[in-house]
Design a protein around this nucleic acid. Structure first.
Lengths: 292, 292
DNA sequence: GACATTCTCTGACCTGAGTCAGGGAACGCG
DNA sequence: CGCGTTCCCTGACTCAGGTCAGAGAATGTC
């Protein structure tokens, strides 16, 4: 990687935070500490203090004081939970709702004033570029790592994978045909985004060939190019274990998967009889990735 | 503008700041308050305390204490200015340079680790999209406003404009041929980016026609589409003053200007004899902008 | 030389953000 | 009922960031 690229990213970050600072100073608006403004948003249509603490990761004492401050300003009320006297529930008052809407409005107005200086086409370009930055940043932020066969999150992914296939295959899907990761010679890879599972996949050794199975991306992580990255990671991992050929099969109902395999350099081969659900099968030769 | 667009921008901002937070937590690194780390960067190869205060917009007392703290850590030295005993000069010590390089390294490492998860093509796409976001954000952030004929910043722009033409025209440029904004019926527009001049331009009434003159963008603000925006602003302003036709002329050496005029809907006309430097002249009919 | 100005530093504050220890009320369970 | 647990509040801190009012030294200006 060029050091120049890193410098460009840093430069962009500096620029963007500065611009953002200008915007959010407006948005912060009426003399309210940031913490309290955040609370106002989070409370929304009322919620347990306990949940707030959890969601925002705040100290209970700290939160307690901030809630009190908001209550003193008549923006929220804090009451005991109807069924559990220990738990307290915070709710916006009418004034609180107004205040929240006002903050929203200020924030929107700042952005609107900015976007207003652009033509409609430029606005579209801007949003499009932002979306692209975001997609790639999400993709880059995903961690892919080999996990033991009994990893809870990976198991969970496989379960959800099977459930989805059950709804997408006209003939349904029998979860019993899932490859048990513990039984095979190969690697189970788990992709995580912010410590939450984003996908999984595994390869199974057959001599110097490997079969890739159960490549799956969680719905929340689709559309950012993770399938391709995870597939590549599986190939690289297999190649690192002296595999020279990988193959895989899929169901004709999974059109996006088929497109992915074709775009990733796989060519169609005759069925090799691994699964009754395979309606189309592919193969690709791989080599150990050179460290750049 | 769609409210949806605003929501998308807000969403992106939220996402980006969160990601940035994760990165800069690393970068902040070794137990140094953010303010001090920023100072370490800004001081760079030594600079006046006065300049630091100016650039970072800090209170003199606050800055003084932070400098002292850095000096106590042996990261900088503060000495009197050689020629002005009131002014003090801050310089990094060897240890300061090392520390700064280390912060740099940490920051770079975080970004590098992230970019490393992308393919070379994706990295290029990412940087490209960032650059696009930045360009458009800069463009949107520029303020364009009518200023009185004796506005200092506008005068300054005109001077710099004349100086640039002097170097770009083979025959040179006589500053005396500049239109004096005070003498004409029309509007002088000044573009500013973060309160610094970014460009200027004016139009001069000739009945229901107007001539646009001295459209100029500072070198620092070029390449973001500001020329087009400023030209448009001049047309709109003129149209708002009952002008129906605008014309302008330019020198054949200014190829980017010619391209701009063509792309903005101007068509070539015969020379109307406004300036001896006009080698090509254009015209366009305009109408008062409808408020959207 | 007198005087205003410029630049820096010091001391005294304030605020927001956050941590930590402990206490008291309510609950769940045996 | 007794007991541990959960949830919350209070009080007492710490720290970074930042403001404000001067004081003091150096400089520029008349």
């Amino acid at each position: 990687m060029h050091p120049d690229q890193i410098a460009r990213v840093r430069d962009f970050n500096r620029f963007y935070t500065q611009r953002l600072g200008v915007l959010t100073d407006d948005y912060l608006g009426r003399d309210r500490p940031l913490g309290q403004a955040r609370l106002l948003f989070e409370i929304g249509a009322g919620c347990d203090v306990r949940d707030l603490r959890e969601r925002l990761g705040l100290d209970s004492g700290y939160l307690s004081r901030m809630l009190r401050a908001l209550a003193d300003q008549q923006l929220i009320t804090v009451r005991a939970h109807p069924r559990d006297g220990r738990v307290r529930v915070a709710e916006l008052t009418a004034a609180g709702h107004r205040e929240r809407a006002e903050l929203d409005r200020l924030s929107d107005a700042g952005i609107a004033a900015l976007l207003d200086n652009l033509s409609a086409a430029q606005r579209e370009q801007f949003l499009d570029a932002q979306a692209r930055v975001r997609r790639l940043l999400r993709l880059a932020g995903v961690r892919i790592a080999a996990v033991p066969a009994d990893d809870r999150a990976a198991r969970d992914c496989l379960r959800r994978y099977a459930a989805e296939l059950g709804t997408r295959f006209p003939e349904g899907y029998d979860p019993a045909t899932l490859t048990a990761p513990a039984d095979v010679d190969g690697t189970l890879l788990l992709a995580t985004e912010d410590d939450r599972p984003a996908g999984c996949g595994l390869w199974v050794r057959h001599g110097t060939a490997a079969e890739i199975r159960h490549l799956w991306i969680t719905p929340a992580a689709r559309g950012i190019g993770l399938g391709r990255r995870l597939l590549r990671a599986l190939e690289d991992d297999a190649a690192g274990h002296l595999i020279t050929t990988v193959r895989l099969g899929t169901h004709s109902a999974l059109t996006e998967a088929i497109a992915l395999y074709r775009a990733s350099g796989y060519h169609e081969i005759a069925d090799y009889g691994a699964s009754k659900y395979n309606q189309i099968t592919f193969e690709k030769t791989v080599q150990s990735p050179q460290s750049s």
